[in-house]
């Protein structure tokens, strides 16, 4: 709030506007909806006359609060709630800010017309109104961004929870295909699954195929190396296959050379290599 330079005096100023705003808000909203419904994309958000009436009511309450409500935590929470509703129903930021600008413009014009004797006073009043309006918009936009980030996080979680199956190719030989993003968390789970798989299937060789992995950072590369070292402690050979050019480069950058790991160009050669290792 400090950032927006909002103070109590701004609040008192905007409250002076409330008389004018209450008078004209209905008119502005009506005009605004006529404007809104003439726009094809915007009109699609409404399901009928009932819906429009309800939204209009909400809107007039919204503007009343904008002008006269106390700016406190509950106000902020409420604004965020409204923002998240907008986000969910697909009201784009352009539409939201456009609507806001429309309202502010109309109201500013009204104020100017109704206070011809004191244009300076009107100007400061409007400035205060703009402050709170911008504060409001910032809140709403943050809600948008938060919601998007939440969605992205959820997707990432889904990806990282993709199961990694441990397949037995033939007695003593396991294949673990890794698909998706390897982050540290998933690499750790992978290690545990690999080791448990070795124990369960009494495996003596494991082929880890990372063809489906787009990028490996140094932390994940370390996890992979640790997995393979741990597999060796359990008496199993491990072969890494399907390294993309990027992955190979990032492995070399963290100081891993092919000698420390048994690597093979593709899955077929990886399995052949594992068979050879099994034969001793």
């Amino acid at each position: 709030m400090r950032w927006f330079d909002l103070s109590e005096s701004d609040r008192t100023q905007t409250r002076e506007l409330s008389r004018i705003a209450d008078d004209v808000s209905e008119r502005i909203i009506e005009a605004f909806y006529a404007h809104l419904l003439s726009d094809q994309t915007a009109a699609r958000h409404f399901r009928g006359a009932d819906h429009i009436a309800r939204v209009k009511q909400g809107q007039s309450r919204y503007f009343r609060e904008l002008i006269s409500a106390d700016v406190d935590d509950s106000y902020i929470a409420d604004r965020r709630r409204i923002g998240s509703i907008h986000e969910r129903t697909g009201v784009t930021p352009t539409l939201y800010i456009g609507s806001y600008a429309y309202y502010l413009n109309k109201l500013a014009l009204e104020v100017q017309q109704q206070m011809p004797e004191a244009p300076e006073k009107a100007f400061t009043l409007i400035l205060s109104l703009f402050k709170i309006a911008h504060f409001d918009m910032a809140l709403a936009l943050e809600t948008y961004v938060d919601a998007r980030e939440e969605t992205i996080k959820a997707r990432e979680r889904e990806l990282s929870e993709l199961p990694t199956p441990v397949l037995q190719l033939r007695p003593g030989l396991l294949l673990i295909p890794v698909v998706g993003t390897l982050d540290s968390y998933r690499a750790r789970t992978l290690t545990v699954q690999l080791l448990e798989g070795i124990k369960e299937h009494r495996a003596r060789a494991v082929v880890l195929d990372i063809t489906g992995v787009a990028a490996v950072d140094s932390a994940v590369a370390n996890h992979l190396i640790q997995s393979m070292a741990a597999a060796r402690l359990m008496g199993a050979h491990s072969v890494l296959t399907g390294l993309s050019a990027e992955v190979a480069q990032s492995l070399v950058k963290v100081g891993v050379t092919g000698e420390a790991l048994n690597t093979a160009g593709d899955l077929q050669r990886g399995i052949q290599l594992a068979e050879n290792l099994l034969k001793g």
């Binding site: 080791l195 640790q226 060796r232 359990m234």
Partner: peptide, 24 residues
């Protein structure tokens, strides 16, 4: 060497280099 033992050994940097290991 059990799975969790192997994991914690590796995390401590203990890899029994050059020593043969087997499952059981």
């Amino acid at each position: 060497i059990q799975p969790d033992v192997a994991l914690s050994m590796v995390l401590l940097g203990l890899t029994l280099r050059d020593i043969p290991t087997a499952l059981d």
